[in-house]
Amino acid sequence: MSNGSQVTSELFENLKLELRRGCLTLAVLTQLRTERYGYTLRKALADDGLEIDEGTLYPLLRRLENQGLLVSQWREEDKRNKRFYRLSPVGEQILEQLLKEWLSINTSLNRIMQEA
């Protein structure tokens, strides 16, 4: 019995992870319409109810930058060097398309849930 519930919980965790992965990318891109550095970005996301641990956020930022969706710059603030990220022009275009896609999926999903 407990083995069954463990399998169910593992399955749920995996599916949740998959679901979150895409959403996090979208949330990060949206937040980075305004320039931020990692720590403040993480806090801003947490304040909006989307907790993300730093072990996930920083590699994600790096991946998005390698894909050309973000640009970054090291700058001094409060006597410390910080790496600031913002959307690149390509990132802005892609974010727009992704948000449209998101809204469309959301609308369809709402419709499906109402029908069910």
């Binding site: 550095y37 990692g38 920083y58 090291w74 910080k82």
Partner: peptide, 9 residues
């Protein structure tokens, strides 16, 4: 680069 950012965080 990664280390500098991690250290800052």
């Amino acid at each position: 680069d990664i280390l500098a950012e991690l250290s800052e965080e």
